[in-house]
Design a protein around this nucleic acid. Structure first.
Length: 148
DNA sequence: GCCAACGTTGGC
DNA sequence: GCCAACGTTGGC
């Protein structure tokens, strides 16, 4: 089983929304993140949910992967904001996974994560990184849980 | 709202 | 293939 961190803007989708129902994690439009979703994220993996671009940025909770990578259906829907005319079901450009809610965490602010030397290797805390789906090592996972 | 950093696009 | 222009991300 592997660990991940997914970013989301809570104004659009938050840990509270995940707590209400499983969700298709759609709309990832970055190739590096896409490759993780398509090739590596597996059912049963655990995921830190990170709130970005908001008042209190940080890790807000944990989700669990209940369906591994499949073609992002929103990319095929002309009415979706995530529509991509270059993606088609025969050769999908983009992938999604399905997540279930696991639990909330007391918000772990980005500043605190940055201050933890055990997390220095995470793209999350590195300047300029915009990666929205990233692997978390078991050691990093434990270090973050220890902060909660 | 500002702006730095990054990814993508498109002309050549 | 280069690289300037542009759009987006995301912290502050």
């Amino acid at each position: 089983m592997a660990y991940w961190l997914f970013k989301t803007e809570p104004d659009t989708f938050s840990i509270d929304d995940l707590a209400r129902a499983n969700t298709i994690w759609e709309g990832v439009r970055n190739y590096q993140a896409r490759n993780f979703l398509r090739d590596q994220v597996q059912e049963g993996d655990e995921v830190f949910i990170y709130h970005s671009s908001c008042k209190q940025v940080g890790i807000a909770g944990i989700g669990r992967v209940v369906r591994a990578g499949f073609p992002d259906p929103f990319a095929f829907d002309p009415d979706s904001g995530y529509f991509d005319a270059k993606s088609n079901p025969d050769q999908p450009s983009w992938y999604a996974v399905e997540l279930a809610f696991e639990r909330r965490l007391p918000l772990l602010p980005l500043a605190a994560l940055k201050a933890n030397p055990a997390l220095a290797g995470m793209p999350l805390v590195q300047k300029g990184s915009r990666l929205s789906v990233m692997p978390v090592t078991p050691a990093q996972w434990r270090a973050i849980l220890a902060m909660a």
